[in-house]
Computed example of a mutant assay.
Amino acid sequence: MKKLMFLFLLAPAVLMAGPKVKIKIRTSAICEMCKERIEKNLTLSKGVKRAELDLNDKVVTVTYDVSKTTFEAVKKAITEVGYDADEAVADAKGYEKLPSCCKKK
């Protein structure tokens, strides 16, 4: 009975979720602190389901719900925290808040 009730309550949330898209964005991330900052900021962004940054190639893979956010909004979230996102340059205020080890040399 509990399982049936759980499925009944969970079904509307699953059905209301929009289609998911996976994108890759090149960043200016340098270290583990950059990785943590970008992933945390993205996962707190509306519609973002998952974010994983590979420091070897400096590319963040983001899975998001297209009914809740856009590609441009995801890139903006990265730039606002102080990192470049593809051709979009990091926001100056966000960049200034970064620790010195996370700034471009």
Rank of each mutant, 00 (worst) to 15 (best):
P12S: 04
P12K: 01
V14F: 13
M16K: 00
A17F: 01
G18E: 02
G18V: 01
P19A: 06
K20F: 02
K24P: 01
K24F: 02
I25V: 10
I25L: 10
I25Y: 03
R26H: 01
T27D: 11
S28P: 07
S28A: 12
A29G: 08
A29F: 09
I30G: 05
I30H: 09
C31W: 08
M33L: 10
C34K: 05
C34N: 06
C34D: 14
K35Y: 07
K35Q: 15
K35R: 12
R37P: 02
R37A: 14
R37H: 12
I38N: 10
I38C: 10
T43A: 06
L44I: 01
L44G: 10
S45C: 13
S45D: 11
K49V: 11
R50E: 15
D54F: 04
L55E: 11
N56V: 09
N56F: 12
V59M: 14
T61R: 06
Y64W: 01
V66F: 00
K68F: 03
K68I: 03
K68A: 14
F71W: 00
E72R: 07
A73G: 05
V74W: 04
V74Y: 04
V74F: 03
K75L: 10
K75D: 06
K75P: 03
K76Y: 13
K76D: 15
K76Q: 15
I78H: 07
E80I: 01
Y83L: 08
D84A: 12
D86V: 04
A88D: 15
A88M: 15
V89D: 10
V89M: 13
V89H: 08
D91K: 08
D91E: 15
A92R: 02
K93P: 04
K93L: 14
Y95C: 04
E96V: 01
L98A: 09
P99F: 13
